[in-house]
Every structure is written in structure tokens, then in C-alpha cells.
Design a protein around this nucleic acid. Structure first.
Lengths: 140, 140
DNA sequence: TCATGTGTTACAGTTAATGTAACATATATT
DNA sequence: AATATATGTTACATTAACTGTAACACATGA
């Protein structure tokens, strides 16, 4: 999954959990309601459990549930929790250093620019909570 | 090529043209100095010729040269010129609309967010000129 | 006329993404 | 204690995307 797909799939699951918080929800149930593959959901939610965004209980009638109210869950921490390799695929060709230093200098320039963009994106995500997403996507 | 790779490769070529502006430079020559494949360079530079960032002359002793001084070439127009499918790979899963409207609402939310991010990125690129990149990557 | 260079297409080889299945581990429930 | 249920993780086959290179028609300066 691309970073953006993982993020939106995670949020779909978290929105479902927020709207069905009376009891733990299994990956099968979440999959049925969101359309996201149950195995992928388990991977995403396992990552989110590590950073205490959700809690899990195993066994019968177990499943996933939010560890905090939606107001205290930020998009940025979701993104950082599920994304290991980091960065929005802003790569630069791996120039062999036998070439002139000009190409290498341009590579360095863009790596710096792209990391600045990355910071900007995360700053923007830090201003968005699960609660605000719930409100923006409310159907009624 | 990913969007970011195309961008950095384009800038490598444009920097070379800016620093060797006495005569048209062939894709073979640019390739030799930048390490970027000549065929890919021709594709990139053909796109940049369409938006009048470079000019080309065919035939013997022909090649590519900047159509404007580096001060008047912006990173944003380079990016828009070479990128057809647009967007930094910020995709959202193509949910089948038979599912509940919640997943679709989250998709719509992220498409909007990602397009906002796209605008932010382009705004940042609009402030950067080829001249500023030449200065930042100068080796002497 | 001919060598040179662009613009474009095609293609094989490689890499990455995708969806699914499988299973060990853990734990409520009966 | 036994069992059904659920997570966490790994593996895999299929598909899609990327990569580098080659090839060639078209154009043009020498």
C-alpha cells in the first residue's frame, strides 16, 4: 500500500471504531463495513496499537477499540505510526558519485527540499484530529 | 520515473544548460555530464520545450538551450511541464460504491486534503527559480 | 547528400504493489 | 479444561509499475 492509501484506510477503520465504540470490533467486521481487506486492517491496527491509538483484545468477542477520544487522536501520529519507510515517495536518483559533483549537488538540494515539504505536510496533519474528520465526513 | 526523480533530473539538465550556454547541448552531452539516460532526457526536455523553458534545434550541431534566463524559470513550471498525471502519488483506494457511504466520504476527504497539499507544494516551488538553485548548488 | 540530433515508441528485465491465504499465539466463553 | 474466536505475522502468487535501453522515423545543419 502506498502511504496515502494506508493513511486513508487507517482513518476509515478509526472512524468506524469511533462510531461503534460500545464494544470491540473485529477486523472482519471493520473490513465488511469499510471494504478494506481484513488482513491489511490487522497490520495497520497492530501498528496503531503500538503507539496506543487503539487497544486490542484477543479471543472471542475481542477486537479493536479506540484508546483515546477522537479529539486526542491526530492525523500526524496516525501517519507516523503506520509509515515505516517515511516520506511521501519523494525520492531522488541514486547518482553514482563518479560523476561530476553538479549532479550530486542537485540531488542534495532536492533531498533537502523534499524533507522540508515532508515537515510541512506533517505540520498540516498535526492540526487535524480524528474528531474533525468525523465531523467533516458525517453523513447526517 | 517518479515525479520527484523527473524533477531532479530535469533540473540537472537545466543547470548544465545554464552553465554551458554558449552553444546548444545534445542529449548525449547532457547525459554524459549528468549521468541521466539520454533517451529520458530527450523526453523531459521535449516536455520543457513545449512550455518554452528550453528551445531545441535539430540536425548537426543542434541540441537544447535555455529559452529564458535562469531568473525567469520557476521550479513550479518545470514540475507542471514534466508531470502529466499530476500529484505526488497521493492516491486513495478506488472504493467500490456499493459499500457504505462512510468509506466514500473518507476518500473524498483525503482527495481534498491531498489536493490542498499539492497546492502547498506548488506554492513552495513557485518561489524557487533555476537561478536560486544554481546558486545553492554552486561548487565554487 | 549525409551525418547528426530530436521526438517518440517499444520492449525486456526488474522491482514494487496487491490481494489472499495460512498459521501460531492468545484469550473470552461455555 | 475444551473450544471457538480473534489478533499478529509471514508467505506467496498475481498483477501492475518502473527502469534502462534500443530502435527508428523525421528534421536539419553542414
Amino acid at each position: 500500500m502506498s502511504a496515502s492509501t494506508k493513511l486513508s484506510n487507517s482513518v476509515k477503520a478509526l472512524c468506524f471504531l469511533a462510531r461503534n465504540s460500545s464494544e470491540p470490533q473485529s477486523s472482519a467486521t471493520i473490513s465488511h463495513h469499510t471494504g478494506v481487506n481484513a488482513s491489511k486492517l490487522r497490520k495497520l491496527l497492530a501498528d496503531l496499537a503500538k503507539i496506543k491509538v487503539v487497544n486490542t483484545t484477543k479471543g472471542a468477542s475481542g477486537g479493536y477499540f479506540l484508546a483515546r477520544p477522537p479529539e486526542k487522536i491526530h492525523l500526524q501520529e496516525i501517519y507516523c505510526g503506520i509509515e515505516d519507510r517515511k516520506a511521501f515517495h519523494l525520492d531522488v536518483t541514486h547518482t553514482d558519485l563518479t560523476k561530476s559533483g553538479e549532479a550530486a549537488a542537485v540531488n542534495a538540494y532536492f533531498l533537502k527540499l523534499f524533507s522540508e515539504i515532508q515537515v510541512d505536510i506533517e505540520d498540516k496533519m498535526r492540526t487535524l484530529t480524528l474528531a474533525s474528520i468525523l465531523e467533516a465526513t458525517a453523513s447526517n
